[in-house]
Structures are given as structure tokens and as C-alpha cells.
């Protein structure tokens, strides 16, 4: 019965798939929107952003995807992640199985304690947001900066422009600070 030709199929290489996951209120959807906009509006690549709506948006698990490609993007959701951001243990447990073998795993080690692999980046996004940036709300922005720094998928400048373009008036400084923290801490990990 099984058709050998189809069984061997891999997710097309022209797609870069990101899943940002955490709990409701951690800004995962907004994070994905910013990432899709920063990559797509400043560069040549196409981006599609999707999320799960519903009760998740008000607490519980929350996930949002960004798919990036130089070609037309067909299926809009992430299938096998090239990058997974997990802001909670629950999110990591739920989505780690779909991370590609050589996919990049970034976790918030303020809240994630058990990581099933050594090959990952851990940064205390929530703690850094609370203690250094001045508000826990910007943990997602620190994480976005870290993703930019670790993957090079988007330039520091493009990300900064998009974040500040979407930041509510009066929060620009906090967001700038959050970006700086994310770039700085991620740069340390790269060494």
C-alpha cells in the first residue's frame, strides 16, 4: 500500500518555519506579527503569520507561527519548525516533538526547567524583562531580539524599526531597552 515516493518527503527547504509559544498574555501572537512584518516588509522574502485563537488568547497555551520563504508560501502554518521559542514548560513539552532535527530551540529558562536536549539556547527572558527592562510585558521583545541575533533572519535595524513602529506611545524606551538586552544576551550565547 505505502507509496515509497511520498513517504520520504521532507518539508520543502525553501521554507523557514518558526513557532513562538508560551501562555496567553505573554505576547506570542504580537511577537509573531512583529517578526513577520520585520522580515517581510523590509526584505525580499514572503512571510505568513498565523495563530490559534480562542480561549488560548486569554490564558492557557498560546502559539503563533511565522513561515518565511523566497517563494510563494502555500501552506500557511508551520509543519516542522526550523525554530521553536518556548516561553513555558508546557509549550516546550507540547511543541518540541515537531522541531526539526537541526532546528533551533530557544527557551525562557526563567520558566522552563526541563529541556529534552543539550542543543538549545536558554535565556531568562521573563526575569530580564522584569528586572532589567522594567516590565514583564517586554519579555517577548527580548526574545524577538534574541531570535534575530541568533538566526540572522532579520537585521537588528529592521526589527528595531518594526518594534518601535508598533509600540504604544510612552513605551518606546522600555522596548528599546528590551531590544538591547535581547541582542546583547544572545550575542553572548553565540560565542
Amino acid at each position: 500500500m505505502a507509496n515509497e515516493r511520498i513517504n520520504k518527503i521532507e518539508v520543502p527547504e525553501d521554507r523557514f518555519e518558526m513557532r513562538l509559544s508560551g501562555s496567553g498574555g505573554q505576547g506570542m501572537i504580537l511577537g509573531a506579527v512583529i517578526m513577520a512584518e520585520a522580515i517581510g516588509s523590509t526584505g525580499e522574502k514572503n512571510t505568513v503569520q498565523t495563530q490559534s485563537y480562542g480561549p488560548e488568547a486569554r490564558g492557557g497555551a498560546s502559539k503563533a507561527d511565522v513561515v518565511v520563504s523566497s517563494n510563494e508560501i502555500f501552506y500557511p502554518k508551520a509543519m516542522k519548525f526550523d525554530l521553536l521559542l518556548a516561553m513555558t514548560q508546557e509549550a516546550l513539552d507540547a511543541y518540541y516533538p515537531d522541531l526539526k532535527e537541526n532546528g533551533i530551540l530557544i527557551v525562557d529558562d526563567t520558566l522552563v526547567t526541563k529541556v529534552p536536549t543539550d542543543k538549545h539556547y536558554g535565556l531568562p527572558f521573563t526575569q530580564l524583562a522584569r528586572e532589567e527592562a522594567g516590565h514583564v510585558m517586554v519579555a517577548n521583545v527580548i526574545a524577538l531580539a534574541a531570535i534575530a541575533e541568533l538566526t540572522g533572519i532579520v537585521s537588528r535595524e529592521a526589527l528595531t524599526e518594526t518594534v518601535l513602529g508598533r509600540a504604544p506611545r510612552g513605551t518606546e524606551e522600555k522596548n528599546k531597552k528590551a531590544l538591547e538586552i535581547g541582542f546583547r544576551e544572545a550575542a553572548k550565547l553565540k560565542k
Binding site: V33, E37, G40, S41, V48, Q49, T50, Q51
Partner: peptide
């Protein structure tokens, strides 16, 4: 549909 309505794309 819900996917179309709530999807963002460049």
C-alpha cells in the same frame, strides 16, 4: 474562513 480572516501575509 477563520484561517483566511485571521492570517497575516506580506
Amino acid at each position: 474562513d477563520e484561517v483566511m480572516g485571521h492570517m497575516r501575509e506580506i
